[in-house]
Design a binder for these strands. Structure first.
Length: 423
RNA sequence: GGAGAGAUGCCAGAGUGGUUGAAUGGGGCGGUCUCGAAAACCGUUGAGCGGGCAACCGUUCCGAGGGUUCGAAUCCCUCUCUCUCCGCCA
């Protein structure tokens, strides 16, 4: 949610930001409602002030044994008028609220203006495309032939675009999760969390998945719960409604969670194998920080995620997303993409974003810099550290040996019962 | 799923219709005292919205949302959450 004072004072800037993000919201409608709201408040506050004043007089007079009948009668009318205005105000505020929920965050000034992925800026590469002396086999074939993943069983159990990991494949999933959590907790100073995988509507609003992306979520209608699309939702909402002690910042959380996405409208070969599945595993990184440090914290967050890829020896690149590619709530975002040798393309495995105070406003997360000072909104950041299935894609395709076997990346060997090869 | 109890400020905990944003205790912050600290004592300590250059003024908020009333933390209704017992269950 944007600061309403910003919309009021710099509407043109907000309109430009909305356009740069390729969103459509009627800012002028907001401004009109905002003015109407302030008019009503001015009137109703005066009426309430009168009512409060006279009600005190009534109390006094009654205590002295008088019967202030005419004052009570007059206030009855004032109260009726207050109610009328309050009803109108409630109506206007509901409209404002629903409009406000659809206004995206403004892009940071360092974000390149652009329409689509061609306008993203490549920041850096790490490693080289692996030189594979044979025709690399796509991961879905390796996974099946080594018995690591059973796609057909998964579709019997659930449906298309689900994965069932089996044997060493399941072990590889668990190994990666443990490896990543160990790194982030031991080396990068994150506190490990094991959150609920279902979240209520308020939480989904707080982080900005709702209302815009409701169609992308799995929804339990009976209880109005949503399956979380990312641990960002539970992690950010840990502090919904809190005023944090400034001394406790920055707060860094990491969590493994399954992630559920309907991926409505995604078809074809982009979705083959593990490229895009409805349920996947991810280790998430999340920070609550003071505004002054949030952009430095974003850089270090990206670094924390990159270190996972480096340790796994996977060739990757870092992209700075352009305005048109930026998600609804983000002010700035870096994507990490790993190289898939057999598919000869880049796969997104992490998005690291600074939301500034956008989520904090929606979710009411503030901090008090020092005792006695006014509470301010924190800045929130999160990023994948990293998402599993595509990492497995890259591992399978990068570490295939050409004779049907798979080398286990060195850092994972201890997590695989010492096995350095899967065959 | 059934029965009951509860939800008040940073924490604990009073308060059943009239200057109650809220007693009291603890904590925090400031001060006195002290070389310093502790103790003691004194003071102070919520947020949102609207208006104002500001000092400040008004208004709202005692789980959430409605209602009754001249007036609601206090009465009524709905919902959410927590706890206890029963049932069910990995």
């Amino acid at each position: 949610m944007l600061d309403q004072k910003l919309i009021r004072s710099e509407p043109e800037r907000v309109k430009a930001g909305v356009a740069a993000k390729r969103e459509k919201v009627d800012i002028d409608a907001y401004l009109a409602l905002d003015e109407e709201r302030r008019n009503i408040i001015a009137q109703v506050d005066n009426l309430k002030a009168e009512r409060n004043r006279v009600s005190r007089e009534i109390a006094d007079e009654k205590r002295q044994g008088a019967d202030p009948e005419d004052k009570i009668k007059a206030m009855r009318e004032v109260s009726a008028e207050v109610k009328e205005h309050d009803d109108k105000l409630r109506d206007v505020e509901a409209k404002i609220e629903s409009l406000l929920m659809w206004i995206p965050n403004m892009p940071h000034s360092s974000v390149p203006v652009g329409r689509n992925e061609d306008d993203n800026k490549i920041i850096r590469h790490w490693g080289e495309k692996p030189s594979i002396a044979f025709e690399p086999v796509p991961h879905w074939d390796i996974a099946e032939s080594l018995g690591l993943v059973d796609f057909s069983r998964a579709s019997v159990i659930a449906g298309s675009n689900f994965a069932l990991f089996k044997g060493k494949g399941a072990r590889l999933v668990r190994a990666l999760i443990s490896f990543m959590l160990d790194m982030h907790t031991r080396k990068h100073g994150y506190t490990e969390i094991w959150p609920p995988s279902l979240a209520n509507r308020d939480s989904m609003m707080g982080t900005g998945q709702l209302p815009k992306l409701e169609e992308d979520m799995y929804h339990c209608q009976v209880d109005d719960y949503f399956l979380v699309p990312t641990a960002e939702v539970p992690l950010t909402n840990i502090h919904r409604g809190d005023i944090l002690d400034g001394k406790s910042l920055p707060i860094r959380y990491t969590a493994y969670s399954p992630c559920f996405r309907r991926e409505a409208g995604s078809y074809g070969k982009e979705t083959r194998g593990l490229n895009r599945v409805h349920q996947f595993d991810k280790v998430e990184l999340m920070k609550f920080v003071v505004p002054e440090s949030s952009y430095d914290e974003l850089e270090s967050l990206v670094g924390d995620a990159e270190e996972v890829l480096q340790a796994l020896g996977l060739h990757y690149r870092v992209l700075l997303l352009c305005t048109g590619e930026l998600s609804f709530a983000a002010a700035k975002c870096y994507d990490l993409e790993v190289w898939s040798p057999a598919q000869a393309k880049w796969l997104e495995v992490s998005s690291c974003s600074n939301f500034e105070d956008f989520q904090a406003r929606r979710a009411g997360i503030r901090y008090r810099p020092a005792a006695g000072e006014k509470a301010r909104f924190v800045h929130t950041l999160n990023g994948s550290g990293v998402a599993l299935p595509r990492i497995i894609v890259a591992i399978l395709e990068t570490y295939q040996t050409g004779d049907g076997r798979l080398k286990v990346p060195d850092v994972l060997v201890p997590f695989m019962d010492g096995a350095d090869v899967i065959e």
